[in-house]
Structures are given as structure tokens and as C-alpha cells.
């Protein structure tokens, strides 16, 4: 892990410019929060591939669908809470049902818009969108992952939700790391407990694994950057070979990564899964770290939970 810190939204903002230069069909549809979502460079360098529909999310999704039918690859860019819930029915009806090549690329996922309060925090988005057929749901764990998964999303055909976050977080991948949509990255091998995380919480899982190692507990750390399609093979491996799994996410524990992993384990009828995430409660205006702590999304709680599982 390098000392460098960068926000995943920055990775998106840089990569989308590179992609737009390579492929003139790639467009950005902003909804008046482009500055915050880091599309400023795209606007400057590729103005002919840029649309700003103003504060009108539903329309943004519909315009994107229409453009996709004419061969464009639109990236609709807004905050996660609006890009999932405000646009939800348009995403279902006009993007996923006709299986159009539209990407919903959102910043401020999870509780990272901390001081803005619950209205701007997005704790349901991935769960809601993963229940819609044809949709792919991705959350990169760092700046490098954000760039590579943005490129992979542009490359694949079909609707895709990309969830980025506000804050600078440690860069854990080097530039040579490979990403395949739907294929988890195992960041650390371990036989005693599996920690499956996504997004900004992957670094917490890595730190927890370091702490556990000091006490002789070997944790396997998995970056499950795609929750749909879930890497079922990896979850099965964890269930079969370790049997003790912790999921960590900045998302409601209902219907997000934890639920997706539980579904696989339950169908196998094996293993035990402990979910760490937002405890089905709204946030409030507070520092990001406090909001995580209130919900037990901390290195300490991952370590504690791992020890409990290990002792079973």
C-alpha cells in the first residue's frame, strides 16, 4: 500500500477523458454536479461529447437511453443517491429493460458526503440497482481501481452502475493491477477467516488483516469490486475452504455486498457470514469516520468480529 491518497472520483474524472478521446461515441451527461463528480476536464477537453441537462435526473437517464439507441455510450454523472434512487424507474424502464449501453457513474457513494447529512448519503443504491435485470454494479476500492473499472465498464456492453466516493483514500493497487468485471481480486491469502469488502472499506479490511496477523490469525482479504454479477466462485471458495466470512461495506447491510454473499452461502447451506455495514439506519451530519464508527465499520470491529468467528 502506497502513502499516496486519492479519491476514486478523481480516477473516474481522469479516465473518462482518456476514454472519450479514444472513442468519440463516449459522452458525459452531467446533472449540474459535474464539478463535484470530476467531469471538469472532460467538459474542457471534449465539449462536443458533453451534455448538461441541469438539475433533472430523470430526464438525464431518459436522454441517455435515447442517445444509446443511436450508438452513443453515455455516462450519466451525478451523486449516488440521485443517480440510483431519483433515476431508479427510468433506469429500469428505459435503460435496463431495453438493455441499453448506458453507464451511471456516481460520486459521493455511501456515507462519504458526511457533513451534508442523510439526504445526500447513499446507503441503498447498490442494493436497489442490483435487483434490476441486466444491470452491472461496481464499486472500486481506490483511484487505480476506479480508472481501470471505468475503462472496463466502457468496454463492456450494457447498463452499468459505477459507485465512486468523495474522500481521498489510500491507493492500494499499483498501475499494473488487472481488473475483470465480475471477478474479485484477492489481496491477501489466509486460511482462518475471509474478509470480503468493497470500495473505501477494502483498506479497512487490509488493516484489520495486519492486526489479526500479529495475533496469529490469517485473514484472506477479498476486494469484491463487482457485487453484480457477484464472483460466486470466490464466495464459494471462501465458504468451502474457510467457512468463516466477514463482509464489510459502506452500504446498508440489507441488500448490498453482505446480502449478496449471504445468498451464496445460504444456498450452499454452509459457512457463517457476519455483515459489517450501515445498520439499516439513516445517517446525520457528522465526520465520515464518526458515521462509520457509529455503524461499526472500523478496523477494530472487523478485528473483534474476526476473533469471535475464529474462536467458534
Amino acid at each position: 500500500m502506497s502513502e499516496m491518497k486519492k479519491a476514486t472520483r478523481e480516477g473516474f474524472g481522469e479516465e473518462i477523458v482518456a476514454l472519450g478521446k479514444q472513442n468519440k461515441d463516449i459522452c458525459v451527461i452531467d446533472i449540474d454536479i459535474g464539478k463535484s463528480c470530476k467531469t471538469g476536464e472532460f467538459v474542457k477537453q471534449l465539449p462536443k461529447q458533453h451534455i448538461n441537462v441541469g438539475i433533472a435526473e430523470q430526464n438525464g437517464a431518459g436522454v441517455a437511453a435515447g442517445m444509446a439507441t443511436c450508438g452513443k455510450i453515455p455516462f450519466v454523472v451525478t451523486y449516488a443517491v440521485f443517480g440510483s434512487l431519483r433515476m431508479c424507474e427510468m433506469i429500469r424502464q428505459e435503460i435496463c429493460y431495453p438493455n441499453l449501453n448506458v453507464k451511471i457513474a456516481c460520486s459521493h457513494g455511501g456515507v462519504t458526503p458526511a457533513n451534508d447529512g442523510a439526504s445526500h448519503q447513499s446507503i441503498e443504491d447498490m442494493g436497489v440497482l442490483r435487483t434490476i435485470p441486466n444491470m452491472t454494479v461496481i464499486m472500486p476500492a481506490d483511484y487505480v481501481a476506479a480508472k481501470k473499472l471505468t475503462a472496463a465498464a466502457a468496454e463492456m456492453y450494457g447498463p452499468c452502475y459505477l459507485r465512486f466516493t468523495r474522500d481521498a483514500i489510500p491507493v492500494i493497487y499499483d498501475e499494473t493491477a488487472e481488473f475483470v468485471i465480475g471477478k474479485a481480486n484477492v489481496l491477501k491469502e489466509g486460511k482462518d477467516v475471509a474478509i470480503i469488502a468493497n470500495g473505501d472499506t477494502v483498506v479497512l479490511a487490509l488493516k484489520a488483516a495486519e492486526e489479526l496477523a500479529k495475533e496469529g490469525i490469517q485473514a484472506r482479504v477479498v476486494d469484491m469490486h463487482t457485487i453484480k454479477p457477484l464472483d460466486v466462485e470466490e464466495v464459494n471458495y471462501c465458504v468451502d475452504h474457510i467457512g468463516k466470512i466477514i463482509t464489510v461495506e459502506d452500504h446498508n447491510i440489507l441488500n448490498g455486498l453482505g446480502s449478496a454473499v449471504c445468498e451464496v452461502a445460504a444456498e450452499k447451506g454452509k459457512g457463517i457470514v457476519k455483515r459489517i455495514g450501515i445498520q439499516d439506519q439513516f445517517g446525520q451530519s457528522a465526520p465520515y469516520e464518526r458515521l462509520l464508527a457509529i455503524n461499526g465499520i472500523t478496523v477494530e470491529n472487523i478485528v473483534k468480529t474476526a476473533k469471535e468467528l475464529y474462536s467458534l
Partner: peptide, 10 residues
Amino acid sequence: LACAVGMALC
């Protein structure tokens, strides 16, 4: 209408 706007824009 939003979809048609997307088409006309293209």
C-alpha cells in the same frame, strides 16, 4: 420525450 430528446441530440 426525454428519450426522443436524446435521439434528436445525437
